Computed example of a mutant assay.
Amino acid sequence: MSDQINVNIPLWDNPLLEIPCRAPKPLLHIIEDNYDMRMVIKNEFKDDYRIIDSEDGLTGFEKTVTTIPDIIISDIQMPGINGIKLCKLLKEDERTALIPVVLITGYDDEQDLLSSLKSGADDYVTKPLSFTILKARIDNLIKTRQLWLNKFLSESYHTPVKPISASSGDMLLKKVYEIINLNIGNPAFEATDFAQAIGMSRAQTYRKIKAITGFSVKEFIQITRLKKAAELLMNSEYNVSEVAYEVGFSSGAYFSSSFSRYFKTTPTKYILLNKGK
């Protein structure tokens, strides 16, 4: 799995544009009380994922909240907080509700399978483990997340983005957009100001936005500014410098470089390609 992802998708029906999205390897959290099994799973995924691991459900929950992994593999049979209880806790917590969870259950244990689904698990695998199947299911869930990110990047400013999966993330994203829209012309508005406006600590805000969108607060604000800029370049009489000012860039040069990095073309060329569409 490469660290460089090139997203080749049309932006507002323009096939000439490419949005580069650089991403590290996905972060996988393995929660398993059996040390040997934990190391076996870790070894199977180490080439394609960054990995953290936990030896029980409580530690797994706490570590998930602080790290916001991209995906979780958890055994069901663990002392204390078992995998089903852990999954239910994660899915009921706004900070972690959107993280995909794959549960490992006993072979043909129908009750465990039913409980897994009721707990909100995104998928499950049965013992004895087939790593070919487990890898395929993990990869599919990661691809679903990446497709969502690609769709978000390709949509216009006024297209309301939906969370990666259904949850209270809908309401939070609505509030996020309201706050950014109110401050989009303020170049001093950054992650700390955003956290204050939304009424959470900076760390808590970062974890929630990262879990819902896949981006940091700073990245999400800047991408939203650039998408607004693209709309203004297409549908207004503003020149490039005026658009930069309208979306909160105090430096025209920085705006042009940021715009070119995301949309793979300069603002001036973007106008020529899209004006009047």
Rank of each mutant, 00 (worst) to 15 (best):
V240H: 07
S2K: 06
N239P: 05
Y107I: 07
I104G: 00
T268A: 12
T266R: 04
N274C: 06
M78P: 04
G83S: 06
G120S: 03
I71R: 00
K269W: 00
A23F: 15
R22G: 13
T64E: 10
S241H: 11
D48N: 12
V161M: 12
I142P: 01
L58Y: 13
I31F: 07
R50S: 14
V247P: 03
F263G: 02
W148H: 13
M200Y: 14
L28P: 01
F45G: 04
D123L: 01
R38L: 07
T96I: 02
N235P: 04
K208Q: 14
A195V: 14
N183P: 11
D122T: 04
S168C: 08
I30S: 02
Y49T: 04
P20C: 08
I9D: 10
S154V: 04
I164E: 01
L17N: 01
G120C: 03
E92M: 10
D108S: 11
V101K: 00
N14S: 10
I5M: 10
L90G: 06
N8I: 13
P15D: 15
I99D: 03
A23P: 03
E190P: 01
D13P: 02
E237I: 04
S216D: 13
M200D: 12
T213V: 09
I41G: 00
N140M: 11
H29T: 01
R22Y: 14
V217F: 06
T268P: 00
K91E: 08
L273M: 14
D36E: 13
G276Q: 07
E44W: 00
K269T: 07
L134Q: 06
D56L: 10
P267F: 07
M78C: 10
Y107K: 09
I142D: 07
G252W: 03
V101L: 04
L98Q: 12
E18F: 04
T105S: 09
P160A: 14
S116F: 05
G83P: 03
L90V: 09
R95T: 15
